[in-house]
Amino acid sequence: MPEPLLAVRDLHVTLRGGGHAVPAVRGLSFEVHQREVVALVGESGAGKSLTARAVLGMPPHGARVTGSVRLRGRELMGESYAGVWGRRMAFVPQDALTVLSPVHTVGDQITAAVRSVAKTSRQEARSRAVAALDRVGIADAARRARAYPHEFSGGMRQRAVIAMAMVNEPELVIADEPTTALDPAIEAQVLEALAAAREATGAALVLITHDLRIVARHADRVVVMYAGRAVESGPVEPVFRAPRAPYTAGLIASLPPAEVDAVDRWLPSIDGAPPSPTHLPRGCAFAPRCPLARQNCEDEEPALAPAGEPGQLAACHRSTELPVPATGLFSRKATA
């Protein structure tokens, strides 16, 4: 196995809230190989965005970050991101307006991004900016480059941000819920634009999402997060077909089936809600909602360990008993 492009080891991100330490990411490890698409899935509060920000070297103010983040073997944790940011790693946020300035044209902003990392003439930079817009499917790119962000639709703005992230041909792009605010038809276009730009530049992608169908369609590997930890990871196909962590199984089971069953309108559902990071259970964080929980689950937090197919890892004391048909595992009635 070649050295991974990105290796994150034992990442902890601790915030301060109301005088308390809030452990938001608790010992997360994962790797991304060259040209690979790795999806980071989990619900709000699971720590996905904090992970992205820590890896990108821009944690929120006051956060304590520990662990290791290596890009091609070089440690970035505690080091300067100069020369990394924008050039080797780039970011696509959920809301384009957080990175696009309203007072400059889209073309000027992408041109400036080019010139911030390379000594090129204005003209050369401009033509690369236009080419980048063209690559994400913006028609008549040279003319549209003269527009301001607010003159673009939401989907076009998101594509412009992708163009800006990709223009310097980074090795790794981290996209945090890049399509959550968009409707499904536009979402599909934006994801296609992202895939096209990735193909053209050879960048690897960390795709943060809570939509398992996007994972199934776009990712090679998946990391499932729950309460600040990875509960399962591995190649998408075996993880979806035969999950080894009950939480993954519950998420997959609660998706509406592809075939509509005329009689059965109930979806298997996971009772309860994710724990608050300030009130984590002592053992497995999923235990209060887990249909397989036993006494030792409440006492001891399970570690991520090989389970199932090669490359598949799960953090569950009972992973060897899985997969059981997940539809039988979770209740199919309204929770009382």
């Binding site: 998420l251 609660s254 309108r265």
Partner: peptide, 16 residues
């Protein structure tokens, strides 16, 4: 709503 919570709310609506 979070994905793990969504199905429960839909089941409730179906039951009602």
């Amino acid at each position: 709503l979070d994905p793990s919570v969504r199905a429960g709310v839909l089941n409730l609506l179906t039951a009602l």
